[in-house]
Design a protein around this nucleic acid. Sequence first.
DNA 1: AAAATCGGTTCATTATTTGAACCGTTGTTG
DNA 2: CAACAACGGTTCAAATAATGAACCGATTTT
Lengths: 261, 261
Amino acid sequence: MGTITKALKLLNEFTSARPEIGLSEFKMISKQDKATVYRHLIELRENGFVEQNSNTKNYRLGPAVLRLASVRERTFPMREAVSKWVDDLSRQLGELVHLSLLQGDAMSPLYCADIQVHGTRVYFDEAELLPMHATSSGLVLLAFGSENLLQSVLSKPLKNYSGLTITNPDVLQDVVTTTRRNGYAFCDQGYEKEVFSIATPIYGKEQKIIGTLAVAVPISRQSEDKISEIVDALKSSSMQVSIALGGAIPVEIERIWENAR
Amino acid sequence: MGTITKALKLLNEFTSARPEIGLSEFKMISKQDKATVYRHLIELRENGFVEQNSNTKNYRLGPAVLRLASVRERTFPMREAVSKWVDDLSRQLGELVHLSLLQGDAMSPLYCADIQVHGTRVYFDEAELLPMHATSSGLVLLAFGSENLLQSVLSKPLKNYSGLTITNPDVLQDVVTTTRRNGYAFCDQGYEKEVFSIATPIYGKEQKIIGTLAVAVPISRQSEDKISEIVDALKSSSMQVSIALGGAIPVEIERIWENAR
DNA sequence: AAAATCGGTTCATTATTTGAACCGTTGTTG
DNA sequence: CAACAACGGTTCAAATAATGAACCGATTTT
């Protein structure tokens, strides 16, 4: 892992749940030497990517990221482009829908919509990195992404989030195989208790998977009919979104989806 | 300059005017070896900070910056905090107002407001890095920022943007001295022709300058009265904004401002 | 008051970054 | 159409920059 990657991974530790991180905490999280982490943070600070809380000396994300995001979205408005589809799907199903992107070996939500029509509601943090082995979106990426990614996830310990998370690599491998056969993934309370999720892949140019479209429902509303309604809607939407982003669902997957009907 | 800084500086090259950059172009801009630039870009790409246009192989900012900006603004909503003040000031003066932040040795707009009440209008790109020697905001930062920053700018060649830009270091030094005496800076068509701008400092915690508040007007609307109206409004607003951000205008500057009345 | 923890610093050792030269492809030009 | 230039990308020895154990002073905990 290069120096640059190590520094950028530090930035990835920030989430809305943990927006400020101290030096020692960073050392723990990143499993690197304190001096190394410190110097990386200093360099990030000098470039405005992090700044320090002057009272606590903790680090938080800096204003530089705001400008970059502004340029990105202004010149390549992917978030805006997908928002329409995600909003529509959420309205149609009456459930939380999110579109997440593969970023290296992590997965990051790009856009999330939730039409509040039911009493219970799934909590979803748009600014949190999602685990690969514990979400339906992650399973889709593992199933249809690169072999490297899958091996990398299988080789590391699988963190237990909910008590029902898949932590056995062999089981995970089986689930990935099932996902390949289905053309979509589901995940029963793997990340958060009481939440069931279903996901389909989004493809960009050159037959490469770039992200996933997913629906999350409280298990109280889960039923055979509901699931098949969601799966059908996801298939159709992920085809349209892929096309909108300049890609297309590979024919193999389209064929699987058609046969399932 | 460390490896991390070199890589981050690459990201800073992206603006809405130049959202995609090829390898050779990057080599030119960054004045580094092609192999070095290439490897840095690869590492940035692997972390989602840039992505490649699959047709042209050019690089553009990646989706990772979107998530980071989302975390930053969600947990530390500075942009939102200042927007109110900037909007008000723009409405009051009927001119373009922007608040920009110092990021290392660069200056980046954080928020910009323009109430379109006049026929002519100043063009302003919120996603562009601004030059220090050619804008009133930059002059303020040079005058009230660190000595290092000033020396660093004075030591490099001063790019001529408009034909009327200050390019002589001695002249720049004089203007900085004047700015220190006034407590605010003005700049006559230094960056863009036909645009006159005035700026005051914004201070954060610990008496440190963190940015500037500036008004830009077409020279056609420039007049003695207008300028003094703007200067008064800027002084008052930058005091309020500094306080809103947890800082305060240093007493020396307050005194200068009061004496000018 | 002793011990632990915090952010930050130092310097010899080490490992990663570096850049000149090179490769294959694409598009341009005499 | 052959020669050339410009592009993105790759290689490997040489050199520089990253590294981490130990240390520092200041707080906080015990």
